[in-house]
């Protein structure tokens, strides 16, 4: 049902990856993306695959979660594969039918692209699997804090993100309730044409809108009652601290990045 939707798919745990500083994790995820895109051929990409697998094993997240995070982008993967397969015309011609030409380079590239996307999704989803949404926004706030110098309201943006994440489950629950209530009044949401279905959403969307405004108002009041006044001079209960784990993690990732570059250079020769 509607409750099965998970957003911010945090997977509680105590692995090394879980304990790593969330700021470092974000940076290392960026490095990981660079690593994947730096890989010029399949051999270099193999290093990236290895990195993905090793980090997944370290995180102790069940491997089937990999499949789960890939599921929504299967259409994208298929689309990329077909695009590369049909539109790369260089290399040796293997098969031809009317205007469709398949070449060996086309196959190579499409396999390469698919593997790259899969690694990309699996690796980056590890970030959200091992970091709670709150830690994540915290880290984003800290990483973006230099932007405060040019008057970007970093704290406010991070607070908005935190609140948005916090209210997703609340609103899902609310939607569920309103849907049940309207169904009890005979609302029909399953049958009919697309336009009828869209119209049938009105009795759900309006109460939901009203509810969100109510929540916002109540929350604003509650925050003001606790003297919230923005980021100025605010201290944190949970200080982000770098530890040896972060150093090792960074070295580990750097080593892999270096290997990818090395393999690239070797293969060129």
């Amino acid at each position: 049902m509607i409750k099965d939707i998970t957003i911010g798919q945090y997977f509680p745990g105590s692995s090394v990856l879980h304990r790593m500083d969330s700021r470092i994790k974000i940076i290392l995820t960026a490095v990981f993306i660079v690593m994947l895109f730096a890989a010029k051929d399949i051999a270099a990409l193999a290093v990236g695959i290895l990195f993905t697998l090793v980090t997944f094993l370290i995180s102790k997240i069940p491997l089937k979660m990999m499949g789960k995070s890939l599921k929504p982008i299967i259409p994208l993967i298929i689309f990329t594969a077909l695009l590369n397969l049909f539109f790369i015309r260089s290399g040796e011609l293997l098969w031809q039918w009317r205007f469709i030409k398949i070449t060996d380079q086309g196959i190579d590239t499409s396999v390469f692209m698919v593997i790259r996307i899969i690694c990309l999704i699996c690796g980056t989803s590890l970030l959200t699997y091992t970091t709670s949404p709150i830690d994540l926004t915290d880290a984003i706030e800290r990483l973006l804090s230099p932007l405060k110098k040019i008057k970007v309201p970093v704290h406010e943006l991070a607070m908005m993100m935190t609140i948005a994440l916090r209210f997703i489950p609340t609103l899902i629950e609310e939607t569920d309730k309103i849907m049940s209530a309207q169904k009890a009044r005979g609302a029909d949401m399953e049958t009919g044409s697309l336009i009828q279905k869209a119209k049938a959403m009105v009795p759900i969307l309006i109460p939901l809108f009203v509810a969100s405004f109510r929540h916002a108002e109540e929350l604003a009041l509650a925050m003001e009652c606790r003297c919230y006044h923005g980021g100025e001079g605010r201290t944190r209960m949970k200080q982000l601290k770098l530890s040896m784990i972060d150093l090792y993690g960074s070295l580990f990732t750097a080593a892999f990045l270096a290997s990818v570059i090395a393999v690239n250079i070797l293969m060129k020769k």
């Binding site: 309103i178 009890a184 009044r185 005979g186 109460p207 509810a211």
Partner: peptide, 17 residues
Amino acid sequence: VRFKVGLVFQYPEYQLF
């Protein structure tokens, strides 16, 4: 059946639209 068995949820005023 839903017309035969009317169900009023808790805080039903939140369903008005």
